[in-house]
Design a protein around this nucleic acid. Structure first.
Lengths: 187, 187
DNA sequence: GTCTATATGTGGATAGAC
DNA sequence: GTCTATCCACATATAGAC
């Protein structure tokens, strides 16, 4: 049985990822969680605070996911493929985005701290990707490999762009088409 | 001297691309264009109508841009490089997105017709990209070339994702880092 | 075509009781 | 911690005069 704060975060994350940060209100959370609108302010003073908590929790979750990928996949190529699967999973059949993409979109309605956190998230992912590509360089599990520090940001942008366009059309096939080439290199 | 309708579209496009479709109101347009809020409804019945006009005009502009690229650049590689430049230009120094990316983000607040238009836009771009990559296949202006029908969607997603992350950090260097590998293949 | 005046809804947020 | 009641700002949109 989850506590109210966690339930609010869960509801807010689902809402933000499917409808955007401007696409949900405290009234929506109130309905889903089952407490009155003003009670939300007891847990999160402002919507900005709530969003900050959201992105901080998300960063931790993704750090864990990356560690899990590393321990489950010995080769660099397999790690990249696993990350593609994570981003594909976040699409939820074409109905949602990962939190980072969802928030980046509505940048103007975010507190500065949230924007900072988004930048930190991307930096973490790029560092992880550089390591994964470097591993692929050593173990030969990735074909046509260029400099890992160039492959990494290109791959992150590819995944985010693929997610965005697939979500727009509500069609996972668009994500698959966009990532086909990358997956062919690592499998 | 532009007419009021065009001025409204210009103002709305700038606003949508920098702050998102939920990030501007008729009050903002009213201030910029210099007519009262309700007068906007004379030109566009609803905000949805305005958005539809926006994306239709955008599609035409991009069609023209693609034709211009083709006539100015003989090789497939040069055409891809020119499209990258168009997407980089749309970033406006890290302060705005292309309309397609900006609208895709706030999908839930869009009329169905607008979503259809966004899908058509992406289809047009992918068709153009397939042709450009195919041209590169013939003229040898692109290295490490795989199937054009796989390269095309990957490239569009890369450009959109690169734009999104660069805009989030308000830093064009992030766009450049993400597109470095692609540009190295075509230059 | 543009105006004033207004309707109507909804947003986030606060005060204070329990 | 959660409630009721309420505030205030702002959103899109309409009615009707000029």
């Amino acid at each position: 049985m989850t506590d109210t704060k966690t339930a609010l975060l869960d509801s807010a994350e689902r809402a933000a990822r499917t409808r955007g940060i401007d696409g949900f209100s405290f009234a929506d959370l109130s309905l889903e969680v089952g407490i009155r609108k003003p009670s939300i302010h007891y847990h999160f003073a402002t919507k900005g605070t709530l969003t900050l908590a959201l992105v901080q929790r998300y960063r931790i979750q993704m750090d864990v996911a990356c560690v899990d990928i590393d321990s489950a996949n010995p080769t660099g190529g397999a790690r990249i493929a696993a990350l593609v699967a994570v981003y594909r999973q976040a699409l939820n059949g074409g109905t949602s985005l990962c939190l980072c993409v969802a928030l980046s979109a509505s940048r103007e309605s975010l507190p500065a701290e949230v924007i900072t956190q988004i930048g930190l998230y991307r930096q973490t992912m790029i560092t992880w990707l550089v390591d994964a590509f470097a591993a692929g360089q050593s173990d030969g599990s990735i074909t046509d490999l260029r400099a890992p520090q160039d492959e990494a940001p290109a791959t992150l942008s590819l995944l985010e762009g693929a997610q965005l366009s697939a979500r727009a059309a509500e069609d996972v096939a668009i994500f698959d088409a966009a990532t086909r080439l990358l997956l062919a290199r690592v499998s």
